[in-house]
Design a protein around this nucleic acid. Structure first.
Length: 574
RNA sequence: CGGGGCGUGGCGCAGCUGGAAGCGCGCCUGCUUUGGGAGCAGGAGGUCGCUGGUUCAAAUCCAGUCGCCCCGACCA
């Protein structure tokens, strides 16, 4: 082991915040010289960032190996016909980068590797005796995202740990899945992150069960719903709430004039009823036509939930013309008396459980009082498509739910046989019968995880690496590199620490002491050792801990400094 | 893809009612300095994103285009 000299490594720092960045982690990764942009959502990792990234990878590898994972490495470039077989050549859409090779064969850049790993499994797994098997890799993915954002939070080219498990039965997958879940918890915890594990929508991946690991963060792109009392936690696209059945007697339906009231707010105010006593119409356009969603006036439709209930993958809001075309009056649309067979009605639980609501009359300037489902109109679907709000009752225990933003760090899925069936990946079971492999898949965005670590571990002066992820544990600042005694002392000290197993960076740049102190804090090395004239004349060096500024002066000797470093880092909270 | 913003030395920005491209930081050289982002002196570095137009004259006005950022849509 040796040490790294700052002057001989590309470790640039910036004094000022970059104009392009908003997120703390994005600003700090640029200022501390971890990353540099090449194009939108495409970054170079500079040496310091790369070291930190490799620390994250090391933790991920250890935990994957601990649950029996075997690392392999699959290609970035895949033949498109493999993707055509699972239907995802179309499903992935423009996110999937496609191109032709010189022979005119269509190729794609891998956005994920279910197809390739299943192809491997199809060829290599023949017997139940080879199962279960967990394969994983840490590898570059490319997804041509419509919008990258937030530095490493959402990028187009990124490093992902993706793991795939193969089982002889759903029961075996069910038994294995919790091990991955626990491994993920350990990974995030070792990275110093209090990640939430939430129930999630399997979405495009398909499959029967799924959890996301989310770091609560105001800049996060995901929204999670949690219950402090019972521990319920779900992605907003999956979360539900509890509906109390209203008990009041059904009243006769009546038409009332509501001139000029085209919004729920207008109607509720005009008729002096709360918005929760109204039903509104929201129109969507799906593959099989128009969908008329009837939902309580004070609630919003969640499109992911709507897609699941209706089975429509491609949903969009319908235009006014499309609404009018089926005989509905925009602003006064009503499920009552709707006749056009092209429209399918979906009743949200919020309306199913309510009584005597105000709804449109499908007539300009009129609404209906005391509308009740199913007395007054039929529906193709009844389901939960409402967006959960902060304070809504928990579906399990009824306590108030919290809604917060977060960064998705990892996602695990029970895939089932979607890919093995599509690609014909079968094995012979204990009875000698060919069966499709049962699969799970498990992803972690490594770069995003690194960004999340910085989101959680920084202060106004810079990054504060957790010890396990610090690119170096110790930085030795030689205050005046023109003075031979300081250079010598710094070098021998650094060598002594390095041979003791620490990763050491020596700041031997010709900079003022102030800059070195500031940069040490900016790049976030857990421990700073100062070799300067003041202490050196007494045969001493000064140590300063990043996380709390704790300082200590010790004798300039390898054993003494090693001892002090060990103690200061061992007692650190990071 | 819709909405908004921004493209001027490496970084952060000013200049924009048209008329000699500037400031701070950084960088280079020299001297002084050296324990919390030093001082002085000298210096290098810019087709003002690109293309076209208007004009005697364009960083500045107009049109188009490309790029980047933010919000939304989208999204393992």
């Amino acid at each position: 082991m040796t040490y790294v000299r700052w002057s001989q490594c590309l470790l640039p720092t910036w004094k000022e915040d970059p104009g392009e960045a908003d997120l703390p982690s994005h600003k700090l990764m640029l200022r501390a010289g971890l990353i540099r942009p090449l194009a939108a959502g495409i970054y170079t990792y500079l040496p310091l960032g790369w070291r930190a990234l490799r620390k994250v990878e090391a933790i991920v590898r250890e935990e994957m190996e601990a649950i029996g994972g075997c690392e392999l490495h699959m290609p970035v470039v895949h033949p498109a016909d493999l993707w055509a077989k699972t239907g995802r050549l179309e499903d992935f859409g423009p996110q999937l980068v496609r191109f032709l090779d010189r022979a005119g064969r269509e190729m794609v850049l891998g956005p994920t590797h279910e197809e390739v790993v299943t192809d491997i499994a199809r060829k290599e797994i023949q017997s139940w005796r080879q199962l279960p098997l967990m394969l994983y890799q840490i590898q570059t993915k490319f997804r041509d995202e419509p919008r990258s954002r937030g530095g490493l939070v959402r990028v187009r080219e990124f490093t992902m740990k993706d793991g795939y498990s193969f089982h002889e039965s759903f029961a075996d997958l069910d038994a294995y899945y919790p091990k991955v879940y626990e491994a993920y918890r350990r990974i995030f915890s070792r990275c110093g992150l209090a990640a939430l594990a939430v129930e999630a929508d399997p979405g495009l991946m398909g499959g029967s069960g799924s959890h996301e690991f989310i770091l609560p963060n105001p800049f996060g792109e995901d929204t999670v719903v949690t219950c402090a009392s019972c521990g319920y936690a779900a992605n907003l696209e999956w979360a539900s709430t509890r509906w109390e059945e209203e008990r009041e007697p059904l009243l006769p339906r009546e038409e009332v004039a509501t001139p000029g009231c085209t919004t729920i707010r207008d109607v509720a105010r005009f008729l002096a009823v709360p918005e929760s006593k109204t039903a509104k119409a929201v129109f969507y356009k799906g593959e099989q036509g128009l969908i008329f969603v009837v939902i309580r006036g004070d609630l919003e439709v969640n499109e992911a939930k709507l897609a699941r209930v209706t089975g429509c993958a491609d949903l969009g809001r319908a235009s006014e013309e499309e609404i009018a075309e089926v005989g509905a009056v925009p602003g006064y649309a009503s499920p009552v008396g709707l006749k056009d067979p092209r429209v399918k009605v979906l009743v949200d639980r919020s309306v199913e459980t309510k009584r005597n609501l105000v709804a449109g009359a499908n007539k300009e300037g009129f609404h209906l009082r005391n509308v009740n489902f199913p007395r007054d109109f039929p529906a193709q679907w009844v389901g939960d498509v409402a967006t959960v709000r902060d304070g809504d009752p928990c579906p399990r225990c009824g306590s108030a739910l919290q809604v917060q933003r977060g960064i998705e760090l990892g996602h695990i899925f029970k895939l089932g046989t979607k890919y093995s069936q599509a690609l014909g990946a079968t094995f012979l079971d204990r009875e000698g019968q060919a069966q499709p492999l049962v699969m799970g898949c498990y992803g972690i965005g490594i770069g995003r995880l690194l960004a999340a670590v910085i989101e959680a571990h920084h202060d106004e002066q810079g990054i504060r690496w957790p010890l396990a992820l610090a690119p170096f544990q110790v930085v030795v600042a030689v205050l005046d590199p023109k003075r031979e005694d300081q250079v010598q002392a710094g070098a021998s000290l650094a060598q002594g620490l390095a041979s003791g197993g620490w990763e050491v960076l020596v700041d031997d740049r010709e900079r003022s002491p102030g800059e070195k102190f500031h940069d040490a804090k900016l790049v976030g090395i857990p421990l700073l050792v100062v070799v300067g004239p003041r202490s050196l004349q007494r045969g001493q060096v000064d140590l300063e801990r990043r996380e709390d500024g704790l300082r200590r002066t010790v004798e300039l000797s390898t054993p003494a400094v090693r001892e002090a470093v060990k103690e200061l880092l061992a007692t650190a909270g990071c």
